[in-house]
Design a protein around this nucleic acid. Structure first.
Lengths: 168, 168
DNA sequence: TTTAATTTTCAATAATTTTTGAAAGTTTAG
DNA sequence: CTAAACTTTCAAAAATTATTGAAAATTAAA
């Protein structure tokens, strides 16, 4: 397979994985494109390769910068902005995990804990509900703390430490 | 807070978490409703509580059954079908993880490996691309194998505090 | 300054996903 | 068997989400 064809296939594949995990397809594709590019790319380069509008590129590049996985880079003699994605994939995984944890998982844990505390009733049914909230927040917190460790750890922590946990 | 209000709030919260992880909101809400219900619920019960159509209930309940996290149950003297969600949350986590792994992560690993092998070119650029595919598939595989272990692990390894609710 | 290049914004539009509801299909009681 | 109860299907409508493109804002060169 040609290198360029392979790059495009990777961009497509990554885009569709993103879609099923609730991440904007274009955003994933822009990121994938920057990853496989040797040179920094301008907004126009991205528009041309992915066949998308200027506005779309701008919005998604900014989102990627917000997420901390893409950065601007200046090219000597060029006025316009260029973008690069760092190619350390483990770092990328950590960044994305960190953001999603903070934005999505942590608020849910908070609500589950509140619900547990706010129900004052003491019927059998209420106790069951509180128990369910507790179990849910337990599992959610455990997942959260595994992710926490992953974020802080060195490259191969995740696998080995997890194995230890299982074996106890 | 009233128990019923708390249940509804939980259903909402869970629905919005689902949305940001690429899972249909109604599907998550139906599941949440079944989780907080003491009795098995009929399609009509679900329609009434969530204010959604019969067709919608049918589709989403079937999807939940497909995912292996909801099952039909018969109620004596009743002709229609009733549904229940098992309340073992760890089991739920395992089931969902298993499905997503199989449907979404594994096919991506396969593509990444193919891309690595299919590019025959040996330029510096091609080598960098292959290296990237390798890194991506190694991170993806690591995540995948962690999930694998979680799925296979004994029910209680994660949380010693886990107590069972109604075990059928 | 002024002007041209470039980036950002956002209302309008397009694409996608979800939901509805009524008709068709199935099952069971009598 | 037939009829009523119930479930499933799926085309059309609604809701949601993503994208465009042109105008406004910003930046930097002249």
């Amino acid at each position: 397979m040609e290198l360029e064809a392979a790059k495009l296939k990777y961009i497509q594949t990554w885009g569709s994985l993103a879609t099923s995990w609730g991440i904007n397809k274009t955003m994933a594709q822009v990121h994938a494109l920057l990853l496989v590019s040797i040179e920094p790319l301008s907004a126009e380069d991205i528009m041309d390769t992915l066949k998308i509008s200027r506005g779309n590129v701008n919005m998604n590049v900014r989102a990627l910068i917000d997420w901390g996985i893409v950065r601007k880079e200046f090219v000597v003699g060029e006025r316009k902005e260029f973008f690069v994605a760092d190619k350390d994939i483990w770092e990328l995984f950590k960044q994305v995990t960190k953001e999603r944890k903070k934005r999505e998982i942590e608020p849910v844990i908070k609500v589950l804990e509140e619900l547990q505390n706010d129900v004052k009733e003491e019927s059998e049914e209420a106790e069951q509900f509180k128990k369910l909230m507790q179990d849910l927040s337990s599992v959610t917190s455990t997942v959260n703390s595994i992710l926490d460790k992953a974020i802080k750890a060195d490259e191969h922590w995740l696998l080995s430490s997890f194995t230890k946990m299982i074996k106890k």
